[in-house]
């Protein structure tokens, strides 16, 4: 092999590596951004392109989003309406204050009607062990009857909680905690 052929072969080899590396370079850049973001914000390691799935119990689907409505000066817990389930799914991986506030504003802008003593569907399985927090419940819907009036919402509180698990070596079970990672209160224009 002449020196010219060797030069050509070396050049070919390095350009092959260069072209073949382009997608991996993009992967590394996005993974570094995700790694930094997940360590400095509320981004779950499972999402964002850093391949941190199956590394922590703090998966977005295990994060809990709770909703309270402020009516007549009191905050009442309310089950998240099904209409908003995809919004909640989008919020859970990265519940920054801005993203949480946006969702709270959208919830506050909708019409809430005081329900007639019905338990929220998700409360029914645990109702035998405990009581509802309040006799008053609200649901998101258009008022259908004359006696249903639209509630005057003074504000909406959205909280996001991340799971944390501590193993109990004696029982082989453990304690599962919920830690608050976001807490946003949005006052409606009526209160302003």
């Amino acid at each position: 092999m002449t020196s010219e052929e060797i030069d050509k072969s070396v050049h070919h080899g390095s350009s092959t590596l260069l072209v073949a590396s382009i997608p991996t370079v993009l992967l590394i850049v996005i993974a570094l951004v995700q790694f930094t973001t997940a360590h400095t914000t509320v981004l779950t390691p499972w999402k964002g392109g850093g391949f941190g799935m199956f590394s922590t119990v703090d998966v977005d689907t295990a994060r809990i989003v709770t909703l309270h409505l402020k009516v007549e000066g009191t905050e009442y817990p309310v089950e998240m309406p099904r209409d908003f389930s995809s919004d909640v799914e989008s919020l859970r991986p990265m519940p920054t204050a801005a993203r949480t506030e946006r969702l709270a504003h959208r919830l506050a802008a909708r019409q809430w009607v005081e329900a007639d003593g019905h338990l929220a569907p998700s409360l029914i399985p645990i109702a035998h062990t405990t009581e509802p927090k309040s006799d008053r419940h609200w649901v998101l819907k258009q008022p259908l009857h004359d006696d249903e009036r639209i509630a005057e919402i003074e504000g909406v509180r959205l909280q996001v909680w991340a799971p944390r698990f501590i193993v109990d070596d004696e029982t082989g079970g453990g304690q599962l905690y919920r830690d608050e990672i976001q807490n946003v209160f949005v006052a409606t224009s009526a209160e302003d």
Binding site: P77, T130, P132, Q175, R178
Partner: peptide, 21 residues
């Protein structure tokens, strides 16, 4: 798990639950 997710709707909201193993 259900209790941890929805106990905030009840009079006794829980901050943790015990999982058996």
């Amino acid at each position: 798990l259900h209790l941890l997710h929805f106990s905030y709707l009840t009079s006794v909201p829980v901050e943790s639950v015990t999982l058996q193993g």
